[in-house]
Amino acid sequence: MSIEPSSAVPVLVLAVRDEYAGRRWAPPGRHWPAQPSAVGGLDLVAGGTWLAVGSAGAGGEAGAVGEAVAACLLNGFGTLAPAQARQSRGELPLLAVRGGRIDRLDLDRYDPFHLVVARASGVRVLSWGGSGSRLAELDLPTGLSVVLNDGPEGMAENRTASERIRSLMGARAARFRARFETAARPEPLPDAVSTGEAWGAWLPIVAGDGLPLDDPAALVQRREFGDGRIWGSSSISLLAFGPAGVRYDFGPAPVEGDGDWRRVEAA
């Protein structure tokens, strides 16, 4: 996340989805008849999404009614919900973009998560570590911020016990924070036609920055953890929030070329 209140486009979000390769999904669209204004990728297993874009309704999270908002879900670490009562976390981004109150849910029914809620006025992260924990809320500061499965800047109350996973997340965050800090910050205005024109110096970095997929610091990655299953990056989303609303660019991961990107019509 890049937050610069003085910019013409004050909030930029890069979201890389990592998932097991066998989990089926569909690219962003209006997949939910009961919520026709919501746009996002569809998890074909549970029916929810990892990232949704919409317009906040009345009575929800702080922000103006009708304001463009996006919500991005990351799995967290902590106590899992009881299997017989478990609710899919994929419904949470949809709830957030229609202005629903996450803090009013029975959170004991959800596995741990971090939910990033972004709009032109700022970015808030809601973190849940499972039964016995509390819902933590954090407004991200001006500048660059990184949200991992270990929470904002890897500092959630509940974090992974795996040294290998912690090391991989840390290497990824450190390299790409440095890369984005030295690259010219784009201002993806709505009249920019192509993804390349809109995102400028960020785009080659977002596409992987030339690192092999198995590099410890790779942003776009592919891992084998020894159980026969493949874990890796399946898609990349770029969101820019400004006075005119939100610009949403989407591509598969890994991105093979500029033609892989498409602009998604959103709120």
Results as ranks from 00 to 15, higher is better:
Ala81Cys: 04
Gly66Lys: 05
Asp139Thr: 14
Ala118His: 06
Ser37Gly: 10
Arg109Asn: 02
Gly66Trp: 05
Leu105Met: 09
Leu42Phe: 01
Glu157Pro: 01
Ala62Leu: 14
Glu61Pro: 01
Leu140Ser: 11
Arg104Cys: 08
Trp50Tyr: 14
Glu137Pro: 01
Ala83Leu: 13
Leu138Lys: 12
Arg119Asn: 14
Arg101Trp: 00
Ala68Cys: 14
Gly122Trp: 10
Arg104Ser: 09
Ala85Met: 15
Arg89Lys: 03
Phe77Asn: 13
Gly48Arg: 05
Ala71Gln: 03
Gly90Ser: 11
Gly48Thr: 07
Ala96Phe: 03
Ala62Tyr: 02
Asp111His: 04
Glu61Asp: 06
Ser162Gly: 07
Trp32Thr: 01
Pro33Lys: 08
Pro27Val: 13
Ser37Val: 00
Arg89Pro: 02
Asp150Arg: 15
Val39Asp: 01
Ala46Tyr: 02
Pro112Met: 11
Gly59Ala: 07
Ala118Ile: 08
Phe77Ala: 13
Leu80Asp: 06
Gly48Lys: 06
Arg101Pro: 00
Val69Ile: 14
Gly132Tyr: 03
Val125Asn: 08
Leu94Lys: 06
Pro112Leu: 10
Gly66Cys: 03
Val123Lys: 08
Asp108Lys: 05
Gly40Pro: 04
Ser167Phe: 04
Arg166Ile: 00
Asp106Ser: 05
Gly170Thr: 12
Leu74Phe: 08
Ala81Met: 02
Val123Leu: 06
Asn149Gln: 05
Thr160Met: 07
Arg134Pro: 00
Ala71Phe: 05
Gly66Pro: 01
Arg89Ile: 07
Arg109Pro: 00
Gly78His: 04
Val146Arg: 02
Arg89Phe: 05
Gly130Thr: 02
Ala52Glu: 01
Val123Ile: 15
Val39Glu: 00
Ala120Asp: 03
Val65Glu: 15
Pro33Phe: 03
Gly76Lys: 07
Gln35Thr: 14
Leu138Ser: 13
Tyr110Leu: 04
Arg98Phe: 00
Gly41Gln: 08
Gly41Trp: 10
Val45Trp: 10
Met155Arg: 15
Gly154Gln: 07
Pro141Thr: 14
Ala120Tyr: 00
Ser131Glu: 09
Glu91Leu: 13
Glu157Asn: 10
Ala70Trp: 03
Pro93Asn: 02
Ala81Asn: 01
Leu42Asp: 03
Asp139Glu: 13
Gly48Ser: 09
Gly60Pro: 04
Thr49Lys: 06
Arg86Lys: 15
Leu168Asn: 01
Asp103Cys: 09
Ala64Lys: 15
